[in-house]
Design a protein around this nucleic acid. Sequence first.
DNA 1: CATGCGTGGAG
DNA 2: TCTCCAAGCAT
Length: 364
Amino acid sequence: MKQSKDIVQNFDIRAFQDDLISWFEQEQRILPWRQDQDPYKVWVSEIMLQQTRVDTVIPYFNNFISKFPTIKDLAYANEDDVLKAWEGLGYYSRARNLQTAVREVHEQYGGEVPNTPAEISKLKGVGPYTTGAILSIAYGVPQPAVDGNVMRVLSRILSVWDDIAKPKTRKLFEDIVHEIISKDNPSYFNQGMMELGAIVCTPTSPSCLLCPVREHCRAFEEGVQNELPVKSKKKAPRALQLAAVVIRDEDGNYLIHKRPSKGLLANLWEFPNIEVDLSIAPDHQQLQAFIQNEYGADIKINAPFTTIQHVFSHIVWNVTVYEAELVSDISALKNLKVVSEKDLEQYAFPVSHQKILKEYLLVK
DNA sequence: CATGCGTGGAG
DNA sequence: TCTCCAAGCAT
């Protein structure tokens, strides 16, 4: 098997570092998390940027930091408020893990983000990439920060044909980065690699003619930059049929439910819903029975007012959405919260249920 | 190691 | 409209 030493053989490491870092100094975008090297802010930005585009993250980062400016503020915050600040960003366990880890830093490290790989990587939600990113950017430690950008850029620069979807390949690239990272400026080296991947060495139609390290690029030399990286495809998401219901009591309040603390959309709020099997019975019958058993609510269901499709990375929800009136007593309700229309905005809803509410407000 | 876990943008 | 994703991590 090919090792990192073999791959970087005859690669002009020093010239590559200089060209990359000079380019980053010149061309880096102005971003809110680049205003200083506060380890907390670096940390928050890196968590938000996981699997998420820069343009999407910017407003969330600004709002999050204004709400929770320091480790201490986030440590003492209510989880519901943290999730509200994350609403719409996706991968919500990132927010809960971040708060768990921040509380750990507050209690075990006196509020100072630790600066060793062993300590940082133990924190909830901080894996190999984020460990390297925090260490290099906030503390100047020459630790690899290998994300999708870095794997794409390096697979082209060094003509590596391993499948970047395989966990093993990330380790290979970490070994490579250990060999070629600048010890003088690991922060700009790592950030430069990611910035290059984001704005020049893009997944499709890379801008090779504008590339500051084109003369180091084996894929460009061989004309195979569009064949790399090799990345196996993910399987298609599975479809689920759901029935959901917007229930209101006689005062016009909404009945909403907090999702379980594990799994999909954990601890977010939703309108009552179930997965239905239309081969068994009409979905409104299954829905009505479920609402009775699960929540102790007798409801009068009206005709569905819309259908919603929501696509996750691994699931497709097809939701038939009903409206209903509560006909039993509020005091009999279990696991439901009664909320006025105005107060709904204080609860974190996934985008799928935001769509439901929007449609409801449109037709009511 | 494979799978679960969101969302909105780009081509 | 559809496909592929984008600065990953936990289990």
